[in-house]
Design a binder for these strands. Structure first.
Lengths: 224, 224
DNA sequence: GACTGAACGTACCATTTCGTACATTATGAA
DNA sequence: TTCATAATGTACGAAATGGTACGTTCAGTC
């Protein structure tokens, strides 16, 4: 008696154990499902179906639905952070560096709608899961550093207004970038305005960049 | 044989028909539940329990869960619009009028977290329900008008920069006001910063107002 | 008072959904 | 080879959940 079976379709079928692949597969599908439908809206059975493995494996590796959700949330944060890479702002003038930083942040949000949705969902849950995750906090701790550096340089050259805090600046930039993705549907519908259209996205991007610059740069350096 | 019964607790119990009250009761509870847990997270049985009436009545008046959700969404929009009342900006200088408008919008969002949550949830659903609602669209059509008026007046006095559009300005103000409520939990957690604290809320409010003013008002009129 | 349609209560059903029991196979160590 | 443990497949169970069948009561009209 050999250890392999013959499947219904006639192909030889030998089970391979590949824990890493199986877990990655589950995470991939789970992240998409949770991001699309939320914690309560996503269905374990549906996640299992879209996986190459079975529901059994989900519970084997991830214990229960909430743990799976938390892992998916962590994965989302990890992925966007990894994508960020290096901006290389140090060789730019402070104003241009800030401009580039804002432009990048705005674009980065646009490119990661699934991540935005996960964050929205998590906020609906009052941040109950992110609270438990030390991983996520540690990931994001240094997110303000680059902005901090640019701002300090701008202060030294005398181009930036003093008295601002990097964290609060980051908050402003995040708000504008986040809202652009998170509230597309309702805003477009209410004002009968296709926010998604490329031309309008460009407009918004330049508005946002301009707005931040005008807030940080000394007014006398800004042309009307 | 009379038409009334005696309940178990001994009190006389005569059923009163009060359709308006019953519907209002259901709507009140449903709105809170959906806002708290989302469409898929909210439970009809739980809504029914928290109501003075029964599950039967929910289906009697609202057909099914999705219809109930849509009605709750519409109610949310209606309520916030009603609260807005009159700002009476016409007698103010353009700069002060704009300042007051932004301050009010920011505050108004803070006062209506349930509404914010409903909008977040609706965006998670890709705006599938708001699309069906002509009521909501009609409600919000004139939301930009006041801003429009102020901006025009500022142009006339020469205090505002030309070339901006009221809708896009409204978008910027909304983004900052909305994000302040919608992303509290994740932002606070990630940056270990109590965004909710009164002192920080005040800071953010003045940042937002200042930021909008610096964007709209001609730079030479802004002191450092 | 008789009649009618709207308003309401109770109990129930069918399905969905999270989670698990149980058996089997793979894989590396001794 | 043997053995232990990790990995996997199949089938199923119990509770939750959206929705309904069926009957009763209220309130206005003639």
């Amino acid at each position: 008696m050999t250890t392999h079976k013959v499947a219904a379709n006639g192909k030889e079928r030998t089970r391979k154990n590949d824990p890493v692949r199986v877990q990655a597969d589950i995470m991939r599908v789970a992240t998409r499902e949770f991001s699309e439908k939320g914690l309560s809206g996503a269905r374990i059975d549906e996640i299992a179906e879209k996986t190459k493995t079975s529901k059994r494996m989900i519970y084997y590796y991830f214990k229960d639905k909430e743990t799976l959700y938390l892992k998916a949330l962590e994965r989302s944060y990890q992925q966007v952070r990894q994508q960020e890479g290096e901006l290389e702002l140090d060789h730019l003038e402070p104003i241009q560096a800030l401009s580039k930083l804002v432009a990048f942040t705005f674009e980065h949000h646009i490119k990661n709608p699934d991540f935005i949705r996960m964050v929205m969902i998590e906020n609906i849950h009052h941040g109950r899961f992110i609270e438990q995750s030390e991983l996520i906090q540690s990931l994001n701790a240094g997110a303000v550093d680059e902005l901090q550096k640019v701002y300090r340089r701008g202060l030294e050259t005398g181009q930036f207004r003093p008295g601002l805090e990097a964290l609060e600046l980051h908050w402003l930039i995040s708000a504008l970038s986040f809202f652009n993705v998170s509230n597309r549907y309702t805003f477009s519908r209410i004002f009968n305005w296709d926010q998604n259209a490329a031309s309008n996205q460009e407009k918004l991007a330049s508005h946002v960049i301009d707005m931040v610059l005008r807030y940080v740069v000394k007014p006398e350096l800004m042309a009307d």
